[in-house]
Simulated scan of single mutants.
Amino acid sequence: MQLNTRTRPATLTRPRIAFLGLGWIGRHRMQAMAEAGDIEIAAVADPDPAAVAAAAELAPDAATGDDLRALLDQKPDGVVIATPSALHAAQSIEALEAGAAVFCQKPLGRDAAETDAVVQAARRADRLLATDLSYRHARAFIALRDLIRRGELGQVHAVDLTFHNAYGPDKPWFRDRRLSGGGCLIDLGIHLVDMALWALDADRATCVSAHARAGGQPLPDDPHVVEDFVLATLELPQGTVVRLACSWNLPAGRDAVIGMDAFGTQGGGTVANVDGSFFDFGAWHHRGTSSAQLVAPPDDWGGRAGADWAGRLRQGAGFDPEACRLTVLAGVLDDIYRKAGAAGTKPALAGSAAR
């Protein structure tokens, strides 16, 4: 395919953004970016006419359609993608090759090959690419990262990360490996692995051991079944041991259990959700048996990743090498699946965007 050769402007006073996929997440991202200001919602599209109508109430002047081509016909500066995971890579590449920057719901690809294909397309097109790794923008996680990077915990030798969702997804495609790329690991665990790499500024991680279960049993060799519980141990280049656990539909006595604990030679740090909330987080700095709270709710962090992308787009940002970390992140997830024995149940991805 011939690349779009539009020159990227030095700055964009009010970038024209198109939104593909208008379910709850898509509309939330659209509203958050609009409220952050200084964007024009140029077009919205979804196969569901009711979803398009609901989005049009928020952006009555936007062009409407049912697919990506309808959006790209409007020549937007950027496209926000919130569609099923199997579509992310191909849609992102098409948008990038048309000259638009891309902000995509995670995962960017169902495996490292798909993910890297998108990253390379962004590099060739010199367009800004980012995904919705939203916890990077929550004040509690930022506070813990800063403790680690300032050396206030000393040498961090162990990290525990948890994300248990008492409910699980309500769309059938989430539980079809060919469409989703996996279960709770690629849905929730992706945030945990990203937090470990990001907070400790690590460029890779090796999976030492992993276990994946579906309904309490080892995963069957069935592409229509995905894991709903994962335990894994990783090792970072600096020797830090990372343990992670994630699940859907776990009877934990609350809506969610989400947290990160970092243990160093001079102190510890914790991020934990408050009262089972998916959105409210606190952060604490531990010294021996004493603890000081650094961050408490409220913190309206959910739309900040998209707003950050839009802000950089306004400044004229092109390809950001930080996007290469998305391939690293996907590779760690692939490694966990292999160690868990889940790779054998993960069929070759039909229509893969890898080239």
Rank of each mutant, 00 (worst) to 15 (best):
I336P: 02
R136L: 05
Q293K: 13
S134Y: 13
Q91R: 14
A62P: 02
A98G: 15
G65W: 01
A59D: 04
L144C: 11
G65T: 06
C184K: 06
I142Y: 01
G267F: 11
W173Y: 15
F279N: 12
T64P: 02
P60N: 04
Q315Y: 03
K106H: 10
G154M: 06
G181W: 08
G189M: 08
N4C: 15
A122V: 03
A89C: 09
P60V: 03
A307I: 10
D77Q: 04
A342V: 03
A112Q: 13
P107S: 12
G282H: 03
F163Y: 15
A256P: 00
R204Y: 11
H191Q: 12
A245L: 12
N273M: 02
L188T: 04
A245T: 15
D194A: 04
A130W: 08
G268F: 03
Y167G: 13
L219V: 09
R175P: 00
T327S: 15
R110I: 05
L87T: 10
A138F: 02
R304T: 07
T131K: 00
P220E: 11
Y337S: 03
V208W: 01
A196T: 03
S290Y: 06
A82C: 15
G78M: 11
W248T: 00
D160P: 00
C324G: 13
P220T: 10
R177C: 01
A166D: 08
A42P: 00
C184S: 14
V328S: 05
